[in-house]
Design a protein around this nucleic acid. Structure first.
Lengths: 254, 254
DNA sequence: CAGTGGTCTAGACCACATG
DNA sequence: ATGTGGTCTAGACCACTGG
């Protein structure tokens, strides 16, 4: 009964990390508390220091713990980082925030790539792409305009998909597209004619723009997109700890 | 006496990571290229696999490379992430980007906290705070307006500081203030009269707003601030990898 | 198949924090 | 002085990818 790894024989470092995460989330170790020392953990899991340190490194990356030379490792937080999926998908983020997502598709097209878009997708100018232009809703109200561009290799899955029905991201996952990494650039831009009409605001209204590129594990570009949010509907927050990476979440503005 | 001039002895994994980062930034390894195998790197740096893997792990966390069982490690991107310090401080970020930072102080005051500010700083309404209002420059050109608010306990270090001379963040560090964690909220806002005058743009111009709260290790609020950037001067980028947290950086828009 | 990166062991030394 | 976490070595086996 004790050994329960029925899922493909869980790795030791995974098992240790899972134990610590669970204990932290459930309050066995609370923020401010000291974690067991590495030596204790090696004994508890009959392991060497390698896997223990690998698990610690993972938790450190998640902002859960803080460690340092000579000091005991301390719990910082008990809130788990938003998952990658929640951050990449408007639909999933809405569901996580108890908001009903919606979409009104304006245009879906297969067309040749313009020069700048081709560069962004790392394909040749004129190669076929699939582009999608949608208005996204939060609880029925306009919240964001979304412009998505895919190389045909990935976009072909989108052409056969009812873009009014939900999450393209989920559809790509389901079709076996290996979405591994994403890079976002955030800035501000004034609403152009299309943005203004769809979002029902004056031209020039400040919008929060998120440009995103998504990659496969092999490094191929899956998507290059441009999302423009009404800033009172959504904003980004980030938490960073000294010496650790940041974690990000999208926050509802209502 | 020991041997000649010694900077702090650099750790092996640091040296390896630095070599790879530099080579990637300078284009010796371009996005899509394969990195040298771990075995090659151990030979090149006369090291064992541990440090090599530690360096790889760091670059993976920065979104620069992607690796996996049986596959060669591949370069994903060549944009370098900034550290926590660089991201919290305008001055340090400028230096890291080879931009000359500047500042024109508009106002430094000790005054009682208004209600909303008091709540944000977790002090009582009417308690003394120190507030700073500055225009920040990049290579002599207006780039950002900065409104900083400190509880008096921390702000007193700022009153004695020449706010036209550089980084308040660095000054606080030097004074021994324990800045450990920060939370940022990013959205868009139109320039108000003050913003417009200082940044030399029309009222209503879309600005990228970053509201920041900084905390000590003990959880006390050090700072509550509101920075508004010209969006063509600066933007935020974030890298997230499936199963890993995100890392963030501020990117020059020139 | 050979080569790669992912995992693991069992040692070791060091810098640092605390008592 | 002891114990901690950070770094490093020199091996090993495995899962997987690619030719």
């Amino acid at each position: 009964m004790t050994t329960g790894p029925r899922h493909r024989t869980r790795q030791q470092h995974d098992e240790i990390a899972h134990y610590l995460r669970t204990a932290i989330r459930e309050g066995s170790f609370q923020p401010g508390d000291e974690l067991p020392s590495e030596a204790e953990l090696t004994r508890k899991f009959t392991s060497s220091r390698g896997p223990v340190r690998q698990a610690m490194s993972a938790l450190r990356g998640e902002g859960l713990i803080s460690s340092g030379r000579g000091r005991r490792t301390v719990v910082l937080d008990n809130v788990l980082t938003q998952s990658f999926d929640d951050v990449i998908s408007f639909s999933q983020w809405c569901h996580a925030s108890d908001i009903v997502p919606g979409q009104v598709t304006q245009r879906v097209a297969r067309e040749p790539a313009e020069k700048s878009l081709a560069a962004s997708l790392r394909i040749e100018e004129g190669d076929p792409i699939v582009s999608v232009f949608r208005l996204r809703l939060m609880d029925e109200a306009p919240a964001m305009v979304e412009r998505l561009n895919y190389p045909f290799e990935f976009g072909r899955h989108v052409l056969a998909f009812d873009t009014d029905s939900g999450s393209i991201y989920q559809e790509l996952i389901d079709q076996g597209v290996d979405i591994n990494r994403a890079s976002r650039t955030i800035d501000a831009v004034g609403a152009n004619d299309d943005d203004a009409r769809l979002l029902e605001v004056p031209v020039g209204t400040p919008l929060l723009r998120v440009r995103r590129r998504a990659f496969t594990t092999a490094g191929d570009v899956i998507e290059s997109s441009d999302d423009r949010y009404l800033p009172w509907k959504a904003s980004f927050t980030m938490n960073s700890t000294r010496g650790n990476p940041s974690s990000m979440s999208l926050i509802s503005g209502d």
